[in-house]
Amino acid sequence: MNKKNLLDYTLHLADNALIIGHRNSEWCGHGPVLEQDIAISNIALDCIGQARNFYQYAAQLSVNDTSEDSLAYLRYTIEFKNCLLVELPNGDWGQTILRQFYFSTYQYFLYQQLQNSSDQQLAAIAEKALKEVTYHLRWSSEWVIRLGDGTEESKQRMEHAVDELWSYTGELVQAASYELLAVSEGYGVDLSTIKTKWEEKVRTVFEEATLTLPGNAWMQSGGKEGRHTEHLGFVLAEMQFLQRAYPGAEW
């Protein structure tokens, strides 16, 4: 088995969870109402928790002094393997909700299958995380429906969010080289099997939300291979500042 590939695959899963967790954490103290501030902060913590599990495993697969912290705080943008979708700015509440919905739908079907991974560690993390993701998907679906089928303003904002984010959804289910190899080695999830399920779920929720599903459009890609938008640099600058300014700081 190709150990480097297992590491890349694990880091990809970890980076996705960490970056969307960080983005959601930016809402802490700024949520539209107290109850939703807590809801999105809970989701942020769930995602960062998933990231920790993957990073801890990735650290085991790496050379000596690599730790979950060094993987999260001391790599540069080109080393991050997250999808572009998760690094995009939060925008308004509708845009954050829609991003979460797209991503949770993907994670839901991904973890469902990753539970059966030949790699026991990945399978165990997926099984644990799936319970959390099931709730994220339910919560974000309902908000997409409430806002899409809500007031004139909320609908308009959701339509704007759909326009902003759609071209970043293709990458979720488009396999990078390490994902293809992971499938052939038996521990990865075949994204082509997820694609249809993802589209079906999104279509169902959009129908109920009276939102129009965009047609075939050109899709952004590159994040999984380390080619990121300019936004990731700013995310890392804020997230990594403390560890880089005060290496090994503890409190």
Partner: peptide, 9 residues
């Protein structure tokens, strides 16, 4: 929504 908010809070 009340039930879900209660779950989260």
């Amino acid at each position: 929504m009340a039930i879900e908010n209660a779950r989260d809070v």
